[in-house]
Structures are given as C-alpha cells and as structure tokens.
C-alpha cells in the first residue's frame, strides 16, 4: 500500500467514484420494461415515476443536507395546483405547466428557505409541519380557486409536444413522467457529485463543523431547499397533468409522511433510494388497495419501526452492506 501511495492520483480516484455503474444503466433500461411487459399497468408506472421524483426532491434536503421536513407536500401541492389551474384556465400545454409548477414551488421554497435555514431539531420539524398544514387549510378554504375538498376539476391537457395525446392506458403519461424523471435525475446526479454536493454532505455529516471550516451552511441550505422545492413542484405538476385533476390530498400531511416513509425505506442519501422505495410502496399499495386504510397504516407503522431499529440506511443501505461483506469474504 505504501509503495502504491506515491503513484496515487487523487483526482483520478474521485473521478472513478462518480462514474456510471452497470447497475445504474441496468436500472434505467429496466424502466422501459413496463411498456412491453406490463402494458396494462402503465398508469401505475407513471404514478410510481412521479412519486419517485417527489422522493428524489426530498432526498436532496433530507438525505444530503440532513433537513427533516414533515411538510414537503406543500411544494408538491403548489406545483400540482399551479399546473392544474393553468390548464383549467385555457392553457393546456404540458411543458409550460411543468415550468410554472417548478417556478411557483421554487419561489415559495426560496422565501421559506430563509426561515428553514435558521432552525433545526424540533423547531424545524414544527415549522415544516405547520407550513404544510397552513397551505392545506388555505387550499381547503379557497374553494373558489381550488375547488376545496372536491378537488380541482376541468383540467384539460393538450397533446404533449403537440403530437402525443394523453391516452387512457397511460402510455404517454408514463413516457412523459419517465423522461422528466430521468432528466431531473441527471441534474441531481451532477449536483451531488459537484463541490456543492460535497458541501451538502458535510452539512449532513456534521453541521457544527461546517462553519469552522469556513462554510456558509445557511446559504447552502437555502439553495438546496429552493431547488428541492422546484423538483417537488415538477412532480406535483406531472401528477396534475397526467391525472387531469388535483385533489386536496396533494397538500396533505399524509403525503408528506408517505414520501418520508418511501425515502427512508429505500435509503436516503443515495439518489436511488427514493426510487426503490417508491416502487415497493406504490406496488404494495396497489396490491392491497382492497384493504381498509387502517390496516395499510398498521403495516407502514411496523415497517417504520423495523427500518429504524434494524435497517438504518434503508434497503439500499442494507444491500450495500451485504455487498461489502460479500466482497470482504471474497478477497
């Protein structure tokens, strides 16, 4: 080892760490399989992709910067209502709806980030929770705008790129959601491999040390929070467009809690965790849709306790540990 160190090239080493792995390529290719294998489940597949995108947005703040939010649905809902309202009032072009959803969510995220970055622990949890509840209640009361508890009806989307109609089988919806998911993923992957991504991991690992190495944590947190809000907004907009309706549920505490469960189940802080969690969660919910909701949440509760106690880094963390142990044995 000592002799190798003289030839050690740190930059090449870090470069190798960011290279695309075969599993990653395999994962993305397998995302195309539903088109041929489960053409009857493309609607579900599109919902999974949207949920995965939402979980990815949470991963940026929770998994990378260590900010616990119990109100992330606020941004999802903002994106959904923005895109939904735009389409309802006569402009059904999908891509501009996405942009609007992202911009509105990002603006609100940016403003609230000034508050978020100042707090930690219980106060932060309370503020995110309170903010989520506040928006939910606001949308509930603003019946004239949002349709309140009845949801936003009359959303009519134009064909995607002027060519692809949104069909009943979810073919366009899934293709659309998947492409958006992949595009956003590329951006976040680049981001997490950047110097900024390294700083975020620093904040997660040790927020006390960061200022002592001259890092402006508050500025970093504001930035990632805004970006995360924008991505959550895109996810919400996608849901509004592909389902052509927006329900109050998009802003609910339930949705905030669900996405947290999904991310933690899959494994936070590794980009793909939310994807794995979303697939398992959504497929299971589809399978058990006949079940009364209480039983479903009994399962979720047990799962949460089990993950915290036995699988601290989620499924992907567990797999990584297994792989490391296996490699250790092999050598």
């Amino acid at each position: 080892m000592a002799s190798a160190s003289s030839a050690f090239a740190p930059q090449a080493y870090l470069q190798a760490q960011t290279r695309w792995r075969a599993v990653e390529l395999a994962f993305w290719l397998s995302c195309l399989l539903p088109f041929v294998l489960f053409p009857n489940y493309l609607v579900l597949a599109s919902q999974i992709a949207i949920t995965a995108l939402f979980a990815l947005s949470l991963d940026l703040i929770l998994g990378y910067a260590g900010i616990v939010s119990l109100g992330h649905a606020a941004f999802f809902g903002l994106g959904a209502y923005s895109a939904g309202l735009l389409a309802k009032h006569g402009w059904g072009e999908p891509l501009s709806g996405l942009v609007l959803g992202a911009v509105v969510a990002a603006l609100v995220g940016y403003v609230s980030s000034f508050v978020i970055a100042r707090f930690r622990h219980l106060t932060l949890i309370m503020i995110t929770l309170g903010f989520g509840l506040l928006l939910h209640e606001l949308a509930n009361k603003a019946h004239w705008l949002t349709g309140g508890a009845d949801g936003l009806q009359g959303v009519r989307m134009w064909p995607l790129l002027g060519a692809f109609m949104f069909d009943l089988w979810g073919f366009t919806a899934y293709a659309y959601a998947l492409i958006v998911l992949f595009a956003v993923f590329l951006v976040t992957r680049r981001l997490t491999n950047s110097p900024f991504g390294l700083s975020l991991r620093g904040i997660r690992e040790n927020p006390v040390r960061m200022p002592a190495i001259g890092a402006p944590s508050v500025a970093h947190i504001r930035k990632i929070y805004t970006l995360s809000a924008a991505i959550a907004g895109i996810a919400g907009a996608l849901l509004a467009q592909t389902t052509e309706t927006v329900s109050l549920e998009t802003l609910s505490f339930q949705r905030s809690a669900d996405v947290l469960v999904i991310l933690v189940l899959g494994g936070a802080g590794r980009l793909y965790g939310g994807f794995v969690g979303a697939i398992i969660f959504m497929v299971a919910r589809d399978r058990f849709s006949g079940l009364t909701p209480q039983y479903w949440y009994f399962g979720i509760g047990v799962l949460l306790v089990a993950v915290v106690m036995f699988l601290p880094n989620g499924i992907l963390g567990g797999l990584a540990r297994l792989a490391a142990a296996w490699r250790g044995k092999a050598t």
């Binding site: 930059q11 090449a12 870090l14 470069q15 960011t18 680049r190 981001l191 491999n193 950047s194 110097p195 900024f196 991504g197 390294l198 700083s199 890092a215 500025a219 970093h220 930035k223």
Partner: peptide
C-alpha cells in the same frame, strides 16, 4: 469559493 458550484463535477 468553488463550493457553490453545482453544475460541474468535483473531479
């Protein structure tokens, strides 16, 4: 002062 850069990879 390169920590804010998020569009280029660290290497």
């Amino acid at each position: 002062g390169i920590a804010p850069a998020w569009w280029r990879a660290l290497p």
